[in-house]
Design a protein around this nucleic acid. Sequence first.
DNA 1: ATGCATGCAAAATGTTTGCATTATA
DNA 2: TATAATGCAAACATTTTGCATGCAT
Lengths: 142, 142
Amino acid sequence: MDKETIFNQFKEQGLKITKACNALLKILEKNRLPLAEVELRAKLSALGIVVNKTTIYRQLTHLKKINLIREVDFGDGKKRFELNTDDCQRHHHHIICTNCKKVEEIYVNDDVKQIELEISRNKKFKVTSHSLEFFGLCKNCK
Amino acid sequence: MDKETIFNQFKEQGLKITKACNALLKILEKNRLPLAEVELRAKLSALGIVVNKTTIYRQLTHLKKINLIREVDFGDGKKRFELNTDDCQRHHHHIICTNCKKVEEIYVNDDVKQIELEISRNKKFKVTSHSLEFFGLCKNCK
DNA sequence: ATGCATGCAAAATGTTTGCATTATA
DNA sequence: TATAATGCAAACATTTTGCATGCAT
């Protein structure tokens, strides 16, 4: 999504593009792995932008509402967010080492889209997103 | 897994088979959908077995350790558990309505096992489990 | 000037821990 | 009777809310 479109989406929702919001987007663009609130805030701080955690959560709520980011769950009780890549070629999944917690992005030739279509047909269920993460032991930990 | 095997697994770990533990297993066998602590406790209560939430969490820890149950994440900040069906024909996934929260079990002809093999080969990563859940709007909510 | 964004504190939610007590093998 | 299981309260971690204040358009 280009800057222009993003800007318009924000205006439509009556939202303002603030420093924190801008920086958050930049950070999410630069980092390929999903980040939790603590990490996002640390990275903002590193850029000299110190904000309260509440602000982070609220901005994430906005960005999620306009579908710019999506939530990724690694099953450790933290919400993580990454740029939404559902509809482009950068769509990917993750492998998470349950020992050292290292996360790697993977691009697999998946048929999940196909499965989503089947579900729509058979179950009359409109699928808007899916989770597909792999858990196990990385090279070093296994 | 038959009762005998389960019993032995427990003994190996130095665990005792208590009323709560037995009832938990029965509940998980009867209910096809993943249940969170609150739900499990309610169902135990309905059976006349009133336990503290701490007990639930501790039993779940045990059951998870011997791989009898697995954690399923619906992204709402609660841990849910279901009997582990990874290695049998009852292996399944879920579709979750993000509006009314209804959950349905689905059996899809997935290639996830295939993807896991690829990951093992290419990434030298031993995959032990995966998550694959679908989110969207159910018949009534869409 | 209006209304969204922010910071702060407090509340809410879900999970875990420490310790004294009870029950099981 | 030794050891695990339990209950309870408190600690913990994460996320959300209420309200007063500041900032952008």
